[in-house]
Design a protein around this nucleic acid. Structure first.
Lengths: 175, 175
DNA sequence: GAGAAGTGATTAGGGAGCTAACTATTTGGG
DNA sequence: CCCAAATAGTTAGCTCCCTAATCACTTCTC
């Protein structure tokens, strides 16, 4: 393991948070700041690891999520619906579908009801890809959280949900 | 709130996880999978919110982290050191410094000891920018986790650290 | 001490996401 | 009934981060 990997693994410390707060004579709670910063760091690292994971199957996180969403809806959904359920913009869906279509995992069809609309269809090849990767995928996800007992996982879900509600505080108009 | 915003806020459910696992006749634990998926979703949402937050001050998450890291080292550090401590590639540091230099928050100097090396220096303007945003920044971070009691924050830090150790399971060679 | 190997920084190019602007179609109000 | 407003999808152009390749300098080895 190189310095670089070590540093990437090194989580920010409570002392760093304290020092930063004191530098400006503020009264923020260092532990609260640490939780926020650690969660951000963990999210970023997990996101990158996720891309590495999916790249093994010729996918990305976004592409995989789109395929699964499609499979959960009988293999058919409009780009707008996909954008809504994935929580990304329609433009992003266009890009993801472009890539998946190029690989033959998905196909585009014109909508029967709406002349403006389109339908994205999961191909046999796309369904097969999901089948091929399922065992390894879920095994790795399970390994990710294997450091926690079932009870602890329940607690974690609860706490995470409550922090998630606070995300609005970062983007809200008034501090 | 539109459908889109609702969907973005809607966390993946335990039933979705269960359905996915059963579809392939696997034996993975749905709750474990749910924890992994929720954490990824939360990380992605937090990352985006973070960009919105820092954009208010003319920065991005990466640029802010670089400035803080610099400030923590007497305002001077080489690009390689920055890459290591931020956990990003040297190429990324080049890009971040390009942007910060354009805004006058940072300057590049040649290294005295090593003819190949460079030193990134925090300018007065960069230090001022950090000072200007500190109060609001920390207040928002604190608000982010205000849904948790101090005890719960401690528990969360512990659980998060243990999951973070499991991230390697996603990228490891052998499943 | 000169060539080979290693290291620091940058450049080039790619993927994922975004917003804004554009096209085509549908819907709805006068 | 027809024109204006809304909606579906795409395109263009931006940022962030990545890897791989390149250039310049240092260090190590013989």
């Amino acid at each position: 393991m190189s310095d670089e990997a070590d540093a990437a693994n090194a989580a920010p410390s409570l002392d760093q948070a304290r020092r930063q707060i004191e530098r400006y004579g503020l009264s923020a709670d260092p532990q609260s700041v640490l939780v926020a910063v650690r969660l951000m760091a963990a999210g970023a690292r997990l996101g990158q690891a996720s891309e590495v994971h999916f790249a093994r199957f010729g996918l990305s996180t976004g592409r995989y999520r789109l395929l699964v969403d499609l499979e959960d809806h009988q293999g058919e959904k409009s780009p707008s619906q996909l954008a809504a359920s994935l929580g990304v913009s329609r433009a992003t869906v266009t890009g993801l579908v472009d890539g998946l279509e190029r690989d033959g995992l998905v196909a585009r069809r014109a909508s029967a009801e709406d002349g403006r609309g389109a339908v994205v269809v999961l191909t046999a090849r796309g369904a097969q890809r999901l089948r091929d990767m399922a065992a390894e995928h879920f095994a790795r996800l399970q390994a990710l959280v294997s450091g926690l007992t079932p009870d602890e996982r329940g607690v974690f879900l609860d706490l995470l949900a409550r922090i998630t509600q606070g995300i609005g505080a970062l983007t809200a108009e008034t501090p």
